[in-house]
Structure formats: C-alpha cells, structure tokens
Amino acid sequence: MKILIALSALLLSANGFGQFVYTDVTYDVSVPLGNTSDFISKTSFRGMTLRVGRFVTDDLAVDVRFSWNTFYETKDFETYTSEDGISSVTGKQFKYINSFPLTAGVRYVLNSSSDFSPYFAGGLGAYKINERRDMGIYYVEDMIWHFGFYPEIGFIYDFSYSVGLNVYARYDYALKTQDATAHSYIAFGVGLHFGD
C-alpha cells in the first residue's frame, strides 16, 4: 500500500492534474474461477479498485493499480473427515478470501480524443491473497504473496469536464506458489474516471 501511495503521488505530481494523468476509483463485483471457486463459489460484491495512470503517448498509458476483493461464504453445520478416516470434525464454517493485487500495467485507448474511449489493458505484479476459514474458535489462515497478471477491457465515457464513467471486465490471475494454489476471478468494475 505504501508503494502504491508513493507511486500514485509520483504520477500525480508529475503534471499536476493535467491532461496526461488520470485516476480511476471503481467498485468491483468479482466472479470466482478455478481454485478460488473451489474454495468459495459465491460471487463477491465487496471489491474496489484504485488506479493512477499517465499517458505516455496519445493512446498509450501506464498505470499502477491497487484492488481489494473480498470473497465470503458460510457453510452449514457439516462434518469433515480426515483422509485416514480417524478424525472427524463437525461445525459451521466461515470462509474468506481477501485478494490484494498491486500491479503495474499499460492501457491502450481507442478514440482517445472522443468522449467514448474503449480500451485494452494489461499488467502484472504482486497479489497478496489471504485465505481463511473459521470454525468455532479455530481458524486457519494462509497469507501468501503470489505473482500475477491481468488482462482487461473496458471503456471511459466522459460525461463532464475531466470526469467520466469507467466500466470494465478484468481477469485477475495469481499464479500458484510453493505453498498455495493459483487463484483467479473476473472482476466487473464500474466507477469514476478523472482525467482527460
């Protein structure tokens, strides 16, 4: 987070809020996929993305992005038995995944001079993923840093002076590590875009 703030400050201070700098603040709805879906199958309605970027050409921008996507699911009072069949535990499970991507990326904008600007984007970086399950007073939590990447498509619709609507679909993929499986989900975002 400190890195994001530092990079954001750097980007913002480069040209003030001139025409080459933009910021996006969006709300995310995320659909879990793969291993993420195996752990929590429910769609997440708790998510956000903060992004600061700067155009290096008329059509191409670089940016840094921080997101927070929370997945949550409860299970009924169920029994789980160890593989050898010797131990069994019954209880109500509460499951959480908190994903914190911190990435750097590029954005290629079509029709950058018009009010409606579709774009393609992609990037890579670190994904901190906290996977937790609670049962009674017990909990098990893995907090693992992953390397990950994202492709994204979306558009900006400028509806006022330097303020626009940002809508996108982003596929976040955090690669597996030695201690954790891969995670993936599609985030659908809507929010505000500040900048020309």
Binding site: R46, G47, M48, F77, I86, V89, G91, G136
Partner: peptide
C-alpha cells in the same frame, strides 16, 4: 481515495453471531 476503502471496510463480512454457530464436535 480515502473514503472508498473506509466504506469498503465497513461492509466487511461478519462471522459467528450466535453461540450455536461456534459449536464444534471433534471425534477420533
């Protein structure tokens, strides 16, 4: 930038609300 995370955190999902949700039975 400041208010969005605060709002988001306030919506963080809860956990155990009632005693019976904390009951665990372990056998071996």
């Amino acid at each position: 930038f400041v208010s969005t995370p605060v709002l988001f955190f306030s919506c963080y999902p809860g956990g155990i609300e009632y005693y019976n949700e904390s009951d665990i039975v372990v056998t071996q």
